[in-house]
Computed example of a mutant assay.
Amino acid sequence: MDKIMRSAIRTIIYMMSACLILWAVLPEWKTVTLGLMVGLAASSMNAFLLKRRVNMLAQATLEEGSRRRGLGFGSRIATVLLVAMLAYRYPETLNMPAALIGSMVMPFVILVAGIIHNVKEDNSGKG
């Protein structure tokens, strides 16, 4: 899981750097690229929250007597809602559709990274 998350975060950083370059080069796309960057940042934060939640659930299953607690889904939704509120409040700075699209990118990046990791693991010649 750590290798998949590391490669997904690396991909998100590359995407954010591409958005930063486009923000500097294309002035008419500044709101779109900034919206994408804010959405990608929120998406990566949600991925870290989900990873932490999965680790907590794994620990809870190992320990007897502990029960589920916390606001895992609520905090992830609140992060996306914060991005939407910022884009709604400052439309001259952030593009709302770009921010919402950026906030939904990380699950797909993790999926692709997991598939690539699985294919590399299967073709490693072991087994």
Rank of each mutant, 00 (worst) to 15 (best):
M1W: 11
M1F: 14
D2G: 15
K3T: 12
I4K: 09
S7I: 10
S7E: 09
S7W: 14
A8P: 00
I9Q: 12
R10D: 03
R10M: 10
T11E: 04
I12C: 06
M15I: 08
S17A: 11
S17I: 14
A18R: 02
L20P: 01
I21A: 09
L22M: 06
L22N: 00
W23Q: 00
W23R: 00
W23N: 07
A24G: 06
V25C: 03
V25P: 00
L26G: 02
P27Q: 14
P27W: 13
E28N: 14
K30E: 09
T31I: 01
G35N: 08
L36M: 07
L36C: 03
L36P: 01
M37D: 02
V38I: 06
V38C: 03
G39M: 08
G39Y: 08
G39K: 12
L40M: 06
L40C: 04
A42R: 04
A42G: 13
A42P: 01
N46P: 02
N46F: 04
A47K: 02
L50P: 01
K51P: 00
K51D: 01
R52E: 00
R53Q: 02
V54Q: 03
V54S: 09
V54K: 02
N55G: 06
N55M: 07
M56L: 05
M56Y: 04
L57R: 03
Q59C: 04
A60Y: 03
T61M: 10
L62P: 01
E64Y: 10
G65S: 05
G65M: 05
S66A: 09
R68F: 09
R68T: 09
R69E: 01
R69A: 06
L71K: 01
F73V: 15
G74E: 07
G74N: 04
I77K: 03
I77M: 13
A78E: 08
A78V: 15
T79H: 02
T79E: 09
V80R: 04
V80H: 07
L82M: 15
V83K: 07
L86T: 12
L86S: 10
Y88R: 01
R89Y: 11
Y90W: 14
Y90F: 15
Y90T: 07
E92R: 00
N95Q: 12
M96D: 05
M96H: 14
M96Y: 15
M96L: 15
A98C: 06
A98M: 14
L100T: 12
S103I: 15
V105D: 05
V105M: 15
P107G: 08
F108E: 07
F108M: 14
V109W: 13
L111Y: 15
V112T: 09
I115W: 13
I116R: 13
I116V: 13
I116N: 09
H117V: 02
H117Y: 15
N118I: 01
K120T: 05
K120Y: 10
K120A: 10
D122S: 05
S124E: 07
S124D: 11
S124C: 03
G125A: 04
G125W: 03
